[in-house]
Design a protein around this nucleic acid. Structure first.
Length: 332
DNA sequence: CCTTGGTA
DNA sequence: TACCAAGGG
């Protein structure tokens, strides 16, 4: 999907004054897989509970709010039934990676990539994340099903300006603008290699891309389905370029498949899921003041964070919210 | 990922 | 001030 879409590079400060709906699961997985020690171990508290995601939330969100952005986290609800196979497959891949990591450790070989691939987002981590976000004054939205669908819905309604996710699925769900690489330091390690490259935050605008490609959203969804989504495998040897060509040639998915004498199971239902997903208007997004005491108690007393570091971040957070409010006062 | 502290 | 390596929990 990425090959097809043009992105506009931005800077974090361009997000000032903007509301961003963050795809929570996507972001937490990112933190979980990347925030690790050199040997691959995630950050953990004294009782062995993983804390990488909490570190990621605290520092990245503080930076983002300091830059003047407004943020809401959108959490996944129940996965659609079509996703079962994909989820089972991912679980399988994870446990194989776990085994590989164990073996690498036993043999003293580098196992960072296996450690990353074994990242699992447990219930307690989700609860901890929500608890920290709430203490930081960041609104938490519970999606009925897919978080990206809910985030896209919020953007379509104009309650947020952007959806933040590394995936392109939010676009298929209709998000007008998706921001990727929403990090501040702008450095990322290349997979496998020990090299850092500059990674800029980038925005993809749905309408702009649709008119540039000369297609409608329904057709973009169909291209996605031909390449493969979270809900289906996609056709052999068909990537974004070929899929675009096929959809342009035949107009829609059914005719493109007919012409190639191929089928995709539940294709119509999957398309329906992207075009009209389960979402809710039962959410509130408003900035609250961070509760310094709660953040410190939780992170330092219960999760063994360094009080000095957390205190510093909290001070910055409080200042950011104060500045944000006074800027707002100027406008109204 | 992000912060910190050393180095030039 | 800019860059790097190491450590965070």
């Amino acid at each position: 999907m990425g090959d097809l879409l043009e992105r506009e590079n931005i800077e974090i400060k361009d997000l000032s004054g903007r509301w961003i709906a963050v795809d929570a699961f996507n972001t937490l997985y990112q933190f979980l897989s990347i925030i690790r020690q050199q040997d691959g171990t995630p950050l953990r508290d004294g009782s062995g509970r993983t804390t990488s995601h909490l570190s990621g939330i605290l520092y990245r969100m503080t930076n983002l709010l300091e830059a003047g952005a407004k943020v809401a986290f959108v959490f996944d609800g129940d996965p659609p039934s079509f996703k079962r196979e994909t989820l089972d497959q991912r679980a399988e891949t994870r446990s194989r990676a776990e085994e590989m990591w164990e073996r690498a450790k036993e043999e003293g070989l580098p196992g960072f990539k296996y450690a990353q691939a074994s990242s699992r987002l447990g219930e307690e981590m989700i609860a901890d994340s929500k608890r920290l976000l709430d203490a930081m004054g960041i609104p938490v939205v519970q999606a009925p099903s897919e978080g990206e669908a809910q985030a896209a819905f919020m953007a379509i309604r104009g309650d947020v300006d952007l959806v933040a996710s590394q995936d392109y699925d939010a676009l298929l769900f209709g998000a007008p603008k998706v921001v990727r690489n929403m990090a501040v330091t702008g450095k990322r390690k290349l997979p496998g290699k020990n090299v850092y490259v500059d990674v800029m935050p980038e925005v993809i605008s749905l309408d702009k891309e649709l008119s540039r490609l000369g297609i409608e959203r329904r057709q973009l969804v169909e291209i996605g389905i031909m390449c493969g989504t979270d809900y289906n495998e996609g056709l052999r040897r068909v990537g974004p370029k070929t899929a675009l060509k096929l959809i342009r040639e035949h107009g829609d998915l059914e005719r493109a498949l007919m012409a190639r004498c191929e089928t995709i199971e539940s294709a119509a239902e999957i398309r329906g899921l992207f075009l009209d997903p389960p979402v809710t208007d039962d959410y509130v997004i408003e900035t609250k003041k961070p509760d310094a005491e709660k953040i410190l108690r939780f992170l330092c007393d219960e999760r063994d964070f360094s009080p000095e570091r957390v205190d510093k971040a909290v001070k910055r957070l409080q200042e950011a919210v104060k500045v944000g409010q006074s800027t707002l006062d100027k406008w109204f």
